[in-house]
């Protein structure tokens, strides 16, 4: 069964996303909403990894990475500066969170076919929260974009 590959990917991606949220939080301390919320969301991602653990233990986690990755989902190693930098960092987070989101969806599909209620419960909570993370990133970027792209010095 290949589900373990996806569970491994998901576990990895949540960890990466958590680290990246922290990175953005510390790089943008002068934007208090971004700063505090990114910390909160980093914790949320770590909680997702924890909630996933019992499922991973049942199905195993395949981190062997036997399939070559085409799209590398590496975390943010640094943050950028200024209003456009903030926008681009949030956009990077958005891409990472999208990967997490779609992976939850695939895991949910498999969980449904397996009739695995425990897995589906985990997906319902974590997938739901990931969707909100995406919506928040969109909300914040949409607010920031005109100022950053048109008048920022």
């Amino acid at each position: 069964m290949n589900l373990s590959i996806y569970l491994g990917m998901l576990h990895q991606a949540e960890t990466t996303l958590a680290e990246s949220f922290r990175q953005v939080a510390s790089g943008h301390g002068a934007e208090p909403d971004v700063h505090f919320l990114c910390h909160t969301l980093a914790q949320q991602c770590e909680e997702h990894s924890r909630l996933l653990l019992p499922v991973v233990q049942r199905y195993g986690e395949d981190l062997s990475d036997s399939e070559p990755e085409r799209l590398h989902a590496e975390g943010l190693s640094t943050t950028r500066q200024g209003p456009v930098g903030l926008l681009r960092d949030l956009q990077d987070l958005y891409l990472l969170a999208s990967l997490v989101d779609v992976t939850w969806t695939m895991v949910k599909q498999a969980g449904s076919a397996l009739r695995d209620r425990e897995l589906l419960d985990v997906v319902a909570r974590c997938g739901g929260e990931t969707a909100v993370q995406l919506r928040w990133l969109q909300t914040r970027m949409k607010q920031a974009a005109p100022q950053a792209l048109l008048v920022a010095r």
Partner: peptide, 10 residues
């Protein structure tokens, strides 16, 4: 909005 983050519902 989502009350934790302020994300708009749409």
């Amino acid at each position: 909005h989502d009350l934790l983050t302020g994300a708009t519902v749409g």
